[in-house]
Design a protein around this nucleic acid. Sequence first.
DNA 1: CAGTTAATTAATCAATGAATTAATATTTCG
DNA 2: CGAAATATTAATTCATTGATTAATTAACTG
Lengths: 236, 236
Amino acid sequence: MSIAQPTRRRKPTVAPKPAKMRDRKPRAPGRPAGGTAEHREALLDAARHVFARSGFAASSLRQIAQEARVTPALTHYYFNDKAGLLSAVVEERVAPLVAVIAKAVSAPGQDPQSALRAFVHAYTQTAAENPWLPQLILREVLSDQGTLRAQFIARFASGMAGMLRAQIERGQQQGVFRRSLDASSAVMSIISLCIFPFIAAPLVSVVLGVRVDPPRAEALANHHLGVLLNGFKDGS
Amino acid sequence: MSIAQPTRRRKPTVAPKPAKMRDRKPRAPGRPAGGTAEHREALLDAARHVFARSGFAASSLRQIAQEARVTPALTHYYFNDKAGLLSAVVEERVAPLVAVIAKAVSAPGQDPQSALRAFVHAYTQTAAENPWLPQLILREVLSDQGTLRAQFIARFASGMAGMLRAQIERGQQQGVFRRSLDASSAVMSIISLCIFPFIAAPLVSVVLGVRVDPPRAEALANHHLGVLLNGFKDGS
DNA sequence: CAGTTAATTAATCAATGAATTAATATTTCG
DNA sequence: CGAAATATTAATTCATTGATTAATTAACTG
């Protein structure tokens, strides 16, 4: 290392590269010819997958950019930060999916069992169609230090858990669920059964031979409902 | 000896540090006075926690060393590699705990329901006493790219899943579990209910107010058994 | 067309990571 | 005691990361 040369890059006085042969590089700098920027979308999709696969901290912007077929500098252009990229993923990719599930459960005029059925079916179908979603939740919500935890709880989890709990208690008053059931634990069991198969998909597929792809989502949801509705009923 | 060679080992061109004042450093190099190395154990404990908290890829040896109150170079001395450190954690910290659970389930002469009870109680108690274990499984077994997945499946998961499945099928033949139940899905449900509350502990504690510490392990296991045994029973 | 704005890459920096080596201090054992 | 083995840190190397800037090219606007 040549010492004492700070090689600062602010001053434009430094002579640029005099001749540059660029013939094999796939894309030259400059605004591209075609329609406007769908590269932003590509970055969001790549980020969603890489974050889900490796976790936020272990994902590198280079890796995401490579998967999106762009340069890392583009993430700075569009999202400024790595954190900004994550926020954008949540806003534009996660939130819409959660909204669908919430809507199914909050449909008015349902008895407790129907509400439970609606939740299980809606969640199972969404998760089967978007396998990256449970993986991302696993990585960034469930894990300690997860970057999305506070945000996710405040925005999605609290409301949903409250609604499920209210339905359980209503069911107990109506006598369709047993009184000895602890409502909070029951909600936890619902969520456990629904979420776990998807976050453990690669494991259950290998060890148990249970597939959780969209064609089997219906059967999976029905199995869960069988266990839950019977398990919550008044014991014989 | 005191050779005046100023610690260069590759590049002789760099001027060495002329004077070095070391007076406030907490510990000087050299073998410590006290008894022999319990620093190895400290490193294993720190690594187990940091890996569980942040995942293998996102954990730095500096961080682990700092938590163990030693220098990063010690990890190289004892474990050679970051991978070697992980292996040691599995061998010396994970395996003994799993052995306890496997022993409880494989006790001979149990009817299917007793075996299920034994598994749920053993797992729940172990997980409650060692919260880092489910977190580590979450990070490195369930996640795609998890470093321990193949190893964990081959060594622990396959055997346990097979045993549980056999018990379910035996219960179906004896008429205590309903015939319409899919055995593989049932095993998945058992595992889901047992594992999820612990990997989601920080979440369920905040959102549902359900604590999963050792004092409540018993109650938690009983709740799960209530749901499972009723949920698997022949519907009314 | 000319000037401005939008989109993109190349190049690079400072910070951090894992891994390694050399030096140093203590214990143990012949 | 003295020599070898053991345990530890300091210092350093090379790769990688997130972030930033300047240059470059296309599209839009008047």
